[in-house]
Design a protein around this nucleic acid. Structure first.
Lengths: 150, 150
DNA sequence: ACTGAAACAACACAACC
DNA sequence: GGTTGTGTTGTTTCAGT
């Protein structure tokens, strides 16, 4: 995982449709060598997948909110309960007064309210606090250039 | 934007390396027709880009935290100040007592502390409250199947 | 708006340095 | 671990329906 790998990752995070020839040219490698490095990055799990990034507004996710979830019991094995709500994009166990933090996208605030209702239906959930996003400055991938040598 | 488009989006969000032939087969279309629909989804901006998804741990992002930022002035045009910190993956203006919510990934908690220090250096920022993630249940893309007809 | 085929480009696997 | 070359595969366009 050298500086070339990091440059490849940075480019692929922006545009994974680029040809291996163009990719190699950008980092000073032949198409074959670039392809080989990318293949290895995939094998090692550094590249998890290559996916289309969809505009949330176009698929009914115009309302974004972060919700902290309080609970009266251990939430450590409740992953599936949260995953069952398709509007929940992320779910994390957090340190602090609340137990779980979830990221939610819905089309309307009414649907957001419905998600909160379904959160309360999860076993052990005793409360929620929703923070609604008014404007998103940016959402971007992790920067491989900052750190991470192994 | 019918049910076929939504099925295509769902597949492409999981794996954008699939051939158009396989993609078409999955939704009952020829390769050409599938390609045409995907091309139109790109043109309309429904598909923003196709990108490699990188394992955050592999590139020095093992520590995840959400930080609410308090301020003494209008933060509505401070997008660039937050974007200047590469460890910040998301920045949103929020409704509520705090002004801005940012998502941060660093390799260590020391680096997280350094990000907080740099946040305080932004003009108008008067306080921060960091919530550290202990375990991530899941992070996934928006579901095109839930809603969003246009 | 989809089908099917034909021209074109990129991928993937060599053999070799 | 790299390059360069070659068969194979997938993409992309276009006439036809």
């Amino acid at each position: 995982m050298d500086h070339i790998d990091r440059a490849l990752l940075t480019r692929l995070q922006q545009d994974a449709t680029e040809s291996y020839a163009a990719l190699g040219r950008a980092v000073g490698l032949s198409a074959g060598a670039a392809h080989d490095r990318v293949r290895k990055l995939r094998e090692r799990g550094v590249i998890r997948r290559t996916a289309a990034e969809v505009d949330p507004v176009a698929v009914g996710g115009g309302v974004l909110a972060y919700v902290t979830v309080d609970s009266t019991s251990w939430m450590g094995d409740a992953a599936e309960s949260f995953a069952a709500l398709p509007e929940i994009l992320e779910a994390h166990i957090i340190a602090g007064s609340a137990s779980v933090l979830v990221k939610v996208r819905t089309a309307t605030t009414e649907q957001l309210q419905d998600v909160l209702r379904r959160l309360y239906a999860i076993d052990g959930v005793s409360g929620t606090q929703a923070t609604v996003v008014l404007e998103t400055f940016f959402e971007r991938p992790v920067s491989p250039l900052t750190a991470g040598q192994d």
